[in-house]
Simulated scan of single mutants.
Amino acid sequence: MDSTTAERRYRAFLAAAQLRHPWQFRCPGQSDEHDGVQVDVPPGWYGVLESLFQEVEAVMPVAERDGFRWRRLCARHAMLEVAFDGLRDPVSPRVVEARERAAVTCDVCGHPGARREVAGRYAVNCHRHFIQRLLRCHPEGESGARIWWDTPQPALGGRSPAAYMEAGPPSEVLIEQALRLAMPPVPWLDASNRQRLQGAWPVLDEALGERLRSLRVAAFEPPSGRGGTLIAMMAGHADPSAQAAAVTRLARNGFSDLRLRLVGQADLASPAVAADPWACMLALEASVSVPRAQPDQSFLVR
């Protein structure tokens, strides 16, 4: 969708919402035409917001409507952010439900999707639009992606990715091929960087315990100011609840420039359907091992 079409669609969506539910957008003391509500969500989430507006219309008592208005309805880091003024009890549960719907709704087409990373950025996408995001990272740019898209591939039974996609929903094989194409170069570690990264071992040992099996680093470019991605390989499946504590420990010990990703070793067998396909493929294709070291742990910040 080009920018002109996207802008036209956005304006049509917002105008229709304000026409159907004017009191939800009215600013106290301002005319009805005053636009004081910040609305910035991708097209795939328009349906989520339309449902939210209808639900609030149904539950908000007429006597309380003068004090209500939306203040912010925005996408932040692929999550729906909502702020409003007015009576909270009938509205807050509907906002929670809308956030949960957005978290599993493709932000491009509105079909079921998942929140996934591509090159450090998150979006909620169906498989089809996840592949499109991956192709934008093709090392040879748009032309390289187009050539691959139209070239028969042995792994796809001699069909091109375009023909394969037309035949049905994207398969794991197609998603994994697109993931491999999008991978950054394998980083190179000099002695000083290797020694520094070894210091992450005792920090993560403290946070993750005996389930931590190995560490790898990807997209590592210190001269450019980018710290890179640190991948902690975990026994079995990764426990997302363990990540927050580990990130905090890393930051306190001087590793705030590294994005930590936990990858269960079981996920590596099928990266396309793992919770974090990008990190799985980084671990398999575009990362280097960080050797274990045993520095004096008395200096660690806990």
Rank of each mutant, 00 (worst) to 15 (best):
G209W: 09
V91H: 03
D267K: 02
H21T: 10
F255V: 04
P271R: 13
V95G: 03
R211W: 00
V48E: 01
D267M: 03
A207N: 05
V59S: 02
A103S: 15
P112Q: 04
V96G: 02
V217S: 07
G113R: 02
R180A: 14
V301N: 15
W23V: 15
Q265D: 12
L258K: 03
R65S: 02
E7M: 15
A275C: 07
H127V: 05
P202E: 08
A269V: 14
S160P: 14
P222A: 01
M233P: 00
D35Y: 12
P277Y: 10
G44R: 04
W23T: 13
E7P: 01
R8F: 05
R133A: 06
A6I: 07
R261P: 00
P170V: 06
L208S: 11
V91R: 01
W188H: 11
W149A: 02
R259I: 12
E55Q: 15
R101A: 08
P161F: 06
A98M: 10
V217K: 08
Q177H: 15
A123G: 14
A98H: 07
L52A: 06
H77V: 02
R146H: 13
V203G: 02
P202V: 12
W23L: 15
L80T: 02
A75N: 15
A163W: 08
Q243M: 08
R136G: 05
R71I: 04
A242P: 15
Q54T: 13
W23E: 13
F130S: 01
L179K: 10
A162P: 03
P277D: 11
I131L: 11
D205P: 05
G199C: 09
R196A: 04
L250D: 00
P28A: 08
D205C: 10
R128K: 07
L300D: 05
G120M: 07
A219K: 00
P22A: 08
C106A: 10
W70G: 00
V217D: 04
S270H: 13
E57Q: 11
P170S: 12
A286D: 00
D257N: 11
F255C: 04
L250T: 00
A58Q: 11
A103P: 03
V62F: 09
R136T: 11
R20G: 01
E100R: 14
F13Y: 13
R302L: 08
V39D: 04
L135V: 08
A293F: 06
R292A: 10
F220P: 00
G120D: 10
S287I: 04
P93M: 05
V173F: 03
L230W: 02
L262E: 05
G228T: 09
W278S: 05
W188L: 08
E210N: 07
